[in-house]
Design a protein around this nucleic acid. Sequence first.
DNA 1: TTAATATATGAACAGATGTTCATATGAAAG
DNA 2: CTTTCATATGAACATCTGTTCATATATTAA
Lengths: 117, 117
Amino acid sequence: MSNDQNQEYLHIHESSIKKVKENIPNDEKLYDLAELFKVFGDSTRIKILYALFTSELCVYDISQLLSVSQTAVSHQLRVLKTNKLVKSRKEGKNVFYSLADDHVHSIINQGIEHIEE
Amino acid sequence: MSNDQNQEYLHIHESSIKKVKENIPNDEKLYDLAELFKVFGDSTRIKILYALFTSELCVYDISQLLSVSQTAVSHQLRVLKTNKLVKSRKEGKNVFYSLADDHVHSIINQGIEHIEE
DNA sequence: TTAATATATGAACAGATGTTCATATGAAAG
DNA sequence: CTTTCATATGAACATCTGTTCATATATTAA
């Protein structure tokens, strides 16, 4: 065991400590990353994203398709929009939502791959 | 507006409804997927995963490296293990943790790409 | 044995999260 | 204008989550 002097660690060697620490992003980035994944961590939001994979949709239709209340859909769409996962387009009384970019697809696909093992 | 008969939808057409619904996984899969992303949705767990990107580590060293209490690390490692993101190996008094597979890396990298835009 | 060390676990508590309900806003129709 | 319709918003509430504290378990050392 490398437990001489002021060594605070049990097994990791001084030389490795620096390497590990360098590879960890700063707190702000870690926070943002966790926030992003938090958005994917809810069934309702995942469902909405899946619906939008197929086509642009207005709030009411999403609500009908998924059997989720209009208010809940609205609240969740706001979360998705804040995190730049969807974008919106207003047309008269309606607001149409669609996916913001391809990351949504690839992140979800990686997740699917993991759980399907 | 396509609002004839019993049409429950505002804009989406009957022909599209089927397509959208077919592309949405069943509830169990949606739930599992959300659960998986929930695991990534916490700074402490993301930090632990980043540390393990570089090397296998025992609990105490993770705790020291990240300045997180031993108990908190233990609790979070259990969550990570339950979700098959890390695996463990016992050696005497120590338990060494390492990444379970490559999905962890690719999921996190997709996340990073998204927030770095 | 007994003591020390590394990790795990359970209860408790504070803070975060998602839904519902009531209502506001904003646009089109009458 | 007034009403109706589509969406958004805020407060309230119940549930979930992550940390801490106390303690249990397991392994090695004395």
